[in-house]
Amino acid sequence: MNVNAVSDVFRRVLENPEVSADSDFFVMGGDSLLATRVLSAIARASGVELDFDDFLDAPTPSALAKKIASQA
């Protein structure tokens, strides 16, 4: 999954079109419930199952895309 695909997931889940590669999910109003929906979308699209702590550690589309790539 590349940065753009992860950004699209953020946009859908946050219901907010203003997501860039460096937008922090939790600063943009994401909470733990919405975070799980991002993680399930990533698992569906890439087969990589990240956990909540991974996401806290990499809360932007660019950081998350790197994490996915490193685990794929």
């Binding site: 799980t36 929906r37 991002v38 399930s40 199952e49 956990d51």
Partner: peptide
């Protein structure tokens, strides 16, 4: 499992 809960919430 965050992925499992994400599927539920989706």
């Amino acid at each position: 499992s965050a992925v499992a809960l994400g599927e539920l919430f989706d």
